[in-house]
Amino acid sequence: MNLQKTFPSRVRFCAANLAERGEDAISGLIDLTSQRLVRFACAITRNQHDAEDAVQTVLIHIGSQPDLLDQSENPWSYLLKMTRNESLIIMRRRKRWFSIDSLCDLLTIRRVDEVQREEVYREIWLALRRLPVIQSEVVVLKIWEEMTFADIAEVLEVTPSTAASRYRYALGKLSVMLRETVGDLDHV
C-alpha cells in the first residue's frame, strides 16, 4: 500500500477521531498534516511565517469545529482547500514587503547525508517562489502531494485540463530556471 493511497485515508481517520473525541485529538491531526500544509501554504504565500499563520488558523478552526472536517467528502482535499483560502486571505492582507529571492524565512531540515543536495533544494525552492502562485500550487499538489489532476482541480476549483496546463507551463519554466542555476553543479 503506497503513501499516496494511505495518506488521505489517514487524514479521514484522524478527522473521525477528532469528531469523536473532540479537541483532545487535534494533536494527531497536527502531527499528520502540519508539515504538508505548511509546505503548500509556503508555495502560495512565499513566506514561512505567513504560511504557518495560515495553517495555524486552519487547524484551530478545525479543532474548534471538528465536524466540519469529518463531514466533508474528502477531508484531505478539504484541508488543502481551507489552507489555500486562508493563505490567499493572508496574502491579500499582507502589507510588508519581502523578497522572493531569499529563503531566510524557511525552517529547513538538514540531514547529514543530504548536505550536498541542500544547495539544489534551495535552488528548487527559490525557483518555485519565482513561479506564479497559480502554477507553483499545482506543482506542489502534483509532485509533493501526489494528487491526480482531477483531485488538484477539485482543490483549486478549476478544470482538470486547466490544472494540467498550469502544471505543464510550471514545469517548463522550472526546467529553464533550474537548468541555468543548477546546471553548473557537479552531479550529485
Binding site: 479537541e23 487535534i26 494533536s27 497536527i30 502531527d31 502540519s34 508539515q35 500544509l37 505548511v38 509546505r39 509556503c42 514561512q48 504557518e52 495553517v55 495555524q56 487547524l59 484551530i60 479543532g63 474548534s64 524557511l106 525552517l107 529547513t108 531540515i109 543536495r117 541542500e118 539544489v120 533544494y121 534551495r122 528548487i124 525552492w125 518555485l128 506543482v139 506542489v140 509532485i143 509533493w144 514545469l171 522550472l174 526546467s175 533550474l178
Partner: peptide, 29 residues
C-alpha cells in the same frame, strides 16, 4: 525534474511553535 522537486519537498519543516500554539488555542477556545 519532478524527482528533484519531490526530494526537495522534505527540505522545509513546520516551526516548533506551531503545534503547541494550535493545541493551546484550541484548548482555550
Amino acid at each position: 525534474l519532478e524527482q528533484w522537486i519531490k526530494a526537495a519537498g522534505s527540505y522545509v519543516r513546520a516551526g516548533d511553535q506551531l503545534r503547541p500554539q494550535v493545541i493551546d488555542e484550541v484548548k482555550q477556545r
